[in-house]
């Protein structure tokens, strides 16, 4: 996997305050890379440096093999940013907005028209060319915000909380678009403090706190930091004997205990053995009432590692 983006020893200070602290990170081609962190953890500062909006105090960022400070034009041509806040002109039509920003990337003439139309169609605003954003709903504005960032077909798209404050429908639409963009070959950096979104679409995640990357990896790798076990709670009807021994023989299961009407089975999280457990219970003629899997999620990883809640 070649690296689209390499961040080396990146540091950003605002006076005495260190917003990003000696961060090193690689993002490979075709990834949807998530930054997870509380407000003020340094996510936005990092993103702004990648998008050339802020100058690093120390360290370097390399995009597609070129330093973004030295080859700033190249870096900017290949980057698209979807800012956290809406960044569109209210007094210009949807078409004019996209066309203006795409024009700044050197597109012109027929090419510009084509790309503008494509971008608008992509976000589902193909029929709203001549409408003014002030008549748009929140979700439509968010979509236009994305269209403005993708018309020049960047290799790297940075999305800073693109789903803040919109209805579930638009949110799904946006998440789908992110996936579609990814399938088309874009590498995506995604921040959100909706844990579920990050868990759902990101291929790799970095947990950021106080300007440092505390841990990074896939969702599974991150949860395995805390523990490599999961608990399966099975509720059953309290009659008949339950053979705990037969369950303990199942691959991955490390411990079984019975608490009144609930069986608590501790198992290695990477082994998928729920089916076998249930089969065994059925064979033993146990009447199952409920099955519940207690696996750690990113929220608990974050809480354990940093001692803070994401939405602090």
């Amino acid at each position: 996997m070649s690296h689209v983006l390499e961040i080396r020893n990146l540091t950003k200070k605002f006076g005495d305050f260190i917003a990003v602290d000696n961060m090193t990170l690689n993002i490979g081609e075709g990834e949807i890379f998530g930054f997870l962190g509380a407000n003020g953890a340094g996510k936005s500062t990092t993103i702004n440096m990648i998008a050339s909006l802020l100058r690093p105090t120390k360290g370097e960022i390399v995009l597609l093999g070129k330093n973004i400070v030295k080859d700033s034009k190249f870096a900017k041509m290949n980057t698209g940013i979807v800012p956290q806040e809406l960044a569109i002109y209210e007094d210009m039509t949807a078409y004019e907005n996209v066309s203006f920003f795409a024009g700044l990337y050197g597109l012109r003439g027929a090419m510009l028209r084509e790309r503008t139309e494509e971008a608008l169609a992509f976000v589902g605003l193909g029929d709203k060319h001549q409408s003014f954003p002030k008549n748009f709903s929140g979700g439509m504005k968010r979509r236009l915000n994305i269209a403005c960032a993708i018309a020049h077909l960047p290799k790297l798209i940075i999305m800073d909380e693109p789903t803040v404050g919109i209805d579930p429908q638009s949110r799904n639409y946006i998440l789908q678009s992110v996936r579609k963009l990814n399938e088309m070959g874009c590498t995506i950096i995604y921040t959100s403090h909706y844990m579920e979104e990050v868990e759902e679409i990101c291929t790799r995640i970095a947990i950021v706190d106080h300007g440092k990357i505390i841990a990074e990896g896939t969702k599974e790798q991150l949860t395995s930091i805390i523990t490599d076990t999961k608990e399966i709670w099975i509720g059953f009807r309290a009659d008949g004997a339950i053979s705990i021994e037969s369950l303990q023989g199942i691959a991955g299961v490390t411990a079984v205990r019975q608490e009144e009407n609930t069986l608590k089975i501790v198992s290695k999280s990477e082994v998928n053995n729920l089916n076998r457990i249930i089969q065994q219970l059925i064979k033993d003629q146990v009447e199952i009432r409920s099955v519940e899997e207690q696996a750690p999620n990113l929220e608990s990883v974050f809480l354990t590692l940093t001692g803070r809640n994401l939405r602090d």
């Binding site: 909006l53 800012p83 209210e90």
Partner: peptide
Amino acid sequence: ARKTAIRLMAAPI
């Protein structure tokens, strides 16, 4: 105010 400064700054100009 409109935050479009972000886009202008991010554009290769």
